[in-house]
Amino acid sequence: MIGHPPTFSTKLVRDLAWVIASPPIQSGHIENTYWWDHDKCQNEFQDCLPTLLELDKDPSPLEQHLSQAKSKRLGHRFETLVSYWLSISPNYELIQQNIQIIEDGITYGEIDFIIKEISTGKVIHLEVCVKFYLGTEPYKNPYRWFGTNTKDQLGKKLDHLLTHQSQLSNNHEGYFSHKIDVLKNQQIDERHCFIKGRLFYPEGSKISPEDTTDNHLRGSWIYSNTIQNTDKKYLAINKTLWLSELNYKDIIDLQKNPVEVFKDRAQCYVEIGLDDHDNLKEQRRVFLLPEAFTFPSDNKNPL
């Protein structure tokens, strides 16, 4: 399993499987926070597989759940899929989610999930996110990996998860015992995080940012003017298709109903080819950048 379970016919179920099985970008125990690793996600996938197979036959419960997402933004879609995962996992009980921390009229942030590990009874504060970053020199520096909004950086996001988001339950512990009924007389035993997504490398580069996992998902970025004389085929995709791999039917649908192409901004594409049976298949994910696109200057925290 490489994070793209290919056996599910329904794209939404494939997205859920991707959310569960795909390798995190960072893992390990950092300070007082445990970052989920690939093995843990793979075990979760195997434990959830019977339910995923049933959903592929009838995805209506998942469709209904996704309709409750706070918005259509990719981050909210991801969190909603994570909440469904936690609700079907035999290893966790989902206690509470999207808890705003408001004290003395000040909003300090929002906790993604409070879950209980069934085997140990531990109450866990879990923070999750999905991100897609493009890298530039020096590649080992996580602050040189940018989102399509270049104010969004891998280094910034990891710092925010580690020092702020995951510490909300630690810094505002009294809030739980007084404000949240389901957590009264309980304490947060552990703080966990995972960040999933994909890192896009410039053609020819294999240098990863420091402290990222070896098996994180990868794509490429290239300037759009460099593909004018190539026989490779690319299809633009919108954010709702950024998670799991496209199958033959998805590609045919996309060819019939292409998404709008923007020449003046970075845009995600799939490079398509043929499999052993001459069916269309996704080869890789690629960001095409307009010729005028430039990355911010080499500062740790560019504005």
Rank of each mutant, 00 (worst) to 15 (best):
I195M: 12
S71A: 01
Y92G: 05
R198T: 14
Q64F: 09
D181H: 14
D58M: 04
V182F: 12
Y201A: 03
H125E: 05
N141S: 11
Y201K: 05
I88Q: 06
E63Q: 13
Y92W: 14
C129M: 07
I115Q: 06
L126E: 02
N98G: 14
Q97R: 15
H172W: 08
H76E: 14
S177H: 11
T150E: 13
F200A: 01
I124E: 06
K184D: 07
Y175D: 07
S71C: 05
E173F: 13
N98C: 08
Y143R: 10
I114Q: 09
I88E: 03
N149C: 04
T80A: 09
F176G: 02
N98I: 08
S166L: 00
L158V: 10
E110H: 09
D159E: 13
T107D: 13
Q187W: 12
I195S: 01
I99A: 08
I195V: 15
T120L: 08
G174P: 00
D58S: 12
G105W: 03
H192W: 11
L55W: 02
I101G: 07
E103I: 14
I88P: 02
K57I: 08
Y139R: 02
T120M: 06
L161A: 02
R144E: 03
C129H: 04
D189K: 11
Q100P: 12
G105Y: 07
E110Q: 13
H172A: 08
S60Q: 15
H192R: 07
N141F: 04
E173C: 12
L134R: 03
K57S: 10
G147R: 01
P142Y: 05
T150A: 09
Y143T: 12
Q68V: 05
S83G: 11
F194T: 02
L162G: 01
W145D: 02
Y92K: 08
N149T: 13
I115P: 04
K122Q: 15
G147T: 05
H178C: 11
G147N: 05
L134F: 01
L154R: 00
D112A: 10
R73M: 10
F113T: 09
I188K: 10
G135I: 00
C193H: 00
L158K: 01
G174A: 05
I124N: 07
L86M: 14
L126T: 04
K131D: 03
I188C: 08
S87G: 08
L86P: 11
Y84W: 14
Y84F: 15
K70P: 08
Q68A: 14
N91G: 09
K140L: 10
I195F: 00
I188W: 07
Q186I: 09
Q187H: 14
Q186E: 14
H65Q: 12
F113D: 09
V130F: 01
F132T: 03
Y84L: 07
P61F: 02
R144Y: 06
H125W: 02
I95F: 11
S119Q: 15
G147M: 03
I101E: 10
Q64L: 11
P59E: 07
